[in-house]
Write a protein that binds this DNA or RNA. Structure first.
Lengths: 198, 198
DNA sequence: GTGTATACGTACCGGTCAGTAACATTGTCA
DNA sequence: TGACAATGTTACTGACCGGTACGTATACAC
């Protein structure tokens, strides 16, 4: 049998992957602009040309970071705390519970996608474009969940939850002991006020 | 009568002030890290040594930008749309109305203070410190207004409003036609659900 | 072994960035 | 007129940053 020419699984971990991992960690913690490519490759234990063989530019690497972040996000959102939920209300509340717990811990750095949007105001930036596409989908998903909850105005409840969640991302970086600790209560208020009673 | 030695009012506008104005505009629009000192002085119509005669470093200039922003913010917050309000509920709603109108317009760039916190994750950064102090005060002020509204739990309503407002700042940059358009409705929901009826 | 492809490293380039030194110019007030 | 304060002019530095030209090591094919 011919040895499979799969683009290599296992193995000590290829340079490109080490770079992705290193970039994800550094870009999230310090911000994309603040981190130089030298720092990325050093932490990855590889050299610069290896980076530019797999990524066309730093912008391209940043976009890859965004895509990785996006994947990771959906895993966390759809299975908050590692569990899956059938009830949309419990689903959203579980995500917010897990999120707001993380958000009040020291060193929390918010949502990498939202942060990138702030670091790169230019619409045509590749990283920003990934982030924008993500947020569009996230909004749609929240609206869907709001609808499944039986909200009178799913669009409004969806937006309310999105505003709340983005508020958690943002204030979580501003201080520990921040408003995120009230987030779960607020989420319940919003849902209960939006869903027809009885 | 001796001519007052006020630190100079009127006059064609001093270099330091032109620099502050230029920096404020550029830092807000493009982000602090993205703007070089050369660009700041060029727009101000002055030269680099003038900048460094009035500011110790770029970080110091960024901190000055934060202080200017802070002043401007409180003016906008306490007198939304140029009017003053005695009723706390109307006051907050007026701010959110004006804010969310701005936030759905193209080119909106959110809150300069929140953005700086994201650009500078390090706690000891001078600009970030100004931003953090500001947010602490803002939270306190919102709690105060929530209390004046007669909220059952002023801390919770204050935090809810803060989360909402930060959510507007953030999502306003992500797209026009964004969730900010629902913000006023959401604010009313939050307040009504938090204030004892009857 | 020799060819070939893959994966990686060494060393460097040009540009930009924050910050400065030294000196010239202007306006104001006495 | 003379002194002082504020600003402009020019030119420079050293660090960093994104990006690249080019050489090297390993492994498999025949």
């Amino acid at each position: 049998m011919k040895k499979a020419v799969e683009p290599s699984a296992e193995r000590p971990l290829r340079a490109a992957d080490r770079i992705r991992a290193s970039a994800s960690e550094l870009f999230y913690r310090e911000g994309i602009r603040a981190v130089g490519v030298d720092e990325v490759v050093e932490r990855a234990g590889v050299t610069k040309p290896s980076l530019y063989r797999s990524f066309a530019s730093k912008d391209d690497l940043a976009a890859a970071y965004m895509r990785d972040y996006d994947l990771d996000f959906w895993e966390k959102f759809e299975n908050p705390g590692g569990k899956s939920y059938s009830d949309p209300r419990e689903h959203v509340l579980a995500y917010i519970r897990v999120l707001s717990t993380r958000a009040v811990r020291e060193g929390y750095r918010g949502c990498g996608l939202s942060n990138a949007t702030i670091e790169y105001p230019a619409r045509d930036n590749p990283a920003r474009q990934v982030a924008e596409a993500h947020k569009k989908l996230f909004r749609k998903r929240l609206r869907e969940l709001a609808s499944n909850m039986g909200a009178r105005h799913p669009a409004v409840l969806g937006d309310a939850l999105l505003l709340l969640i983005e508020g958690i991302y943002s204030t979580g970086q501003q201080s520990e002991d921040g408003p995120a600790q009230s987030a779960l209560t607020v989420a319940k208020m919003l849902i209960d006020a939006s869903v027809a009673k009885g």
